[in-house]
Design a protein around this nucleic acid. Sequence first.
DNA 1: ATTATTTTTTAGGCATGTCTAAAAATAGTG
DNA 2: CACTATTTTTAGACATGCCTAAAAAATAAT
Lengths: 219, 219
Amino acid sequence: MLTQSEENYLKAIYSLSEDQKEAISTNLLAEKMSTKPSSVTDMVKKLSVKKLISYQKYQGCELTVVGKKRAIQIIRKHRLWEVFLVNNLNFGWDEVHEIAEQLEHIHSSKLTDHLEEYLGFPKVDPHGDPIPNKNGVFEKINKSIALSDVDTAVKGIVVGVEDGSSGFFQFLKRYEIGLGTEIKVVEKFNFDLSVLVLIDGKEISFSSVVANKIFIQIK
Amino acid sequence: MLTQSEENYLKAIYSLSEDQKEAISTNLLAEKMSTKPSSVTDMVKKLSVKKLISYQKYQGCELTVVGKKRAIQIIRKHRLWEVFLVNNLNFGWDEVHEIAEQLEHIHSSKLTDHLEEYLGFPKVDPHGDPIPNKNGVFEKINKSIALSDVDTAVKGIVVGVEDGSSGFFQFLKRYEIGLGTEIKVVEKFNFDLSVLVLIDGKEISFSSVVANKIFIQIK
DNA sequence: ATTATTTTTTAGGCATGTCTAAAAATAGTG
DNA sequence: CACTATTTTTAGACATGCCTAAAAAATAAT
Ligand SMILES: [Mn+2]
Ligand SMILES: [Mn+2]
Ligand SMILES: [Mn+2]
Ligand SMILES: [Mn+2]
């Protein structure tokens, strides 16, 4: 049985591995976990002994096949609970992440599977992220593109946002942006990487920080 | 924010306080928590500093008003989740306790309240135990009586069972006993405190252990 | 190739929650 | 009222997960 901390490390390593093929460095993982590199070293040693990651001193770490499966199961639980909170308990999509961070650590595969069935085997969570099935399989249908990478004059609909701070969700709510919102890129400014977009007839300027976190699907 | 361990101690103290008016002794609490008296001493000191219990060396402990409220909120969550698991996720009443032991520690009063509403403000959990409302108020309608205390020839229907091991639930399932089952006490044996009962036309002998855990309502 | 910088690990410490063994306090008995 | 038995607390230890400060290794720069 893994501790919550161990599970959170596995999730973090998995998440970072999606962005890069190479091993995850101690410092990068420390950053992600909001902790100190020395703490990370302690933990990767432990996870390595448990064969959940491969780790060589000074060489960073990578999930083993078993470790990756564990990570995906935790993500599965996280996203299923988020669906439940939004669809059934009337939470906003901006309120569920923190609670799901707790619920993802409940140990009962039967619970997870029954919940999935109860929810009608959803394919994506409220933020547009795919939900792995019982066997850890999920489609990376996310051929979405960050607003910052969209060409001028191109439009699309929001299919995902990066799991971020509650401040970011507040921001989205303020501008009435959610899954399905249509956004058109009007102009891009190189000097500060900001993006001028058109939403529901209104022009809005997004900073590069925001433009990097909103993902749209074109056509 | 309380740790899971602290919350479990509060629950245990509350539970023991229902059976006795006096302060809860260190040994009794250790027994209930399946831990050692020395560990209990450590914890009661901590809870005392936090003003959740009153505690004087060698004199046992009692919940403060604040501590009692906390305990009741945890019980509220436990029972609401049990209702959800049985009513919505198709779990059997004998399978939900362990999972609820985990779910009761999720910190979000909004979640609890939304769940309660979603479930339709249930008054009792799947084991017949009352569910406190948002303000910690609940009716002790449990004028039920343990089988061991029922007089000979008296009959009633099962309205509750003591939260016990999964072995106990297996036992109940084997004899097809659930909420609503009619049981008649045929004879009581003083030499071993066993009870001979009649269920659905069949005579069964219950040990005193079992007779103490099944609660029926008469007439 | 040597020095400087950055990254990573080690060493030692702290808080939580548990344990065993021993000491202290309380309760029970004649 | 002493003496014993039980209960409870203390002392010291261990595992987990985190920290700071210092040492060691790897990487970059001169
Ligand atoms: Mn999330
Ligand atoms: Mn988490
Ligand atoms: Mn229960
Ligand atoms: Mn619990």
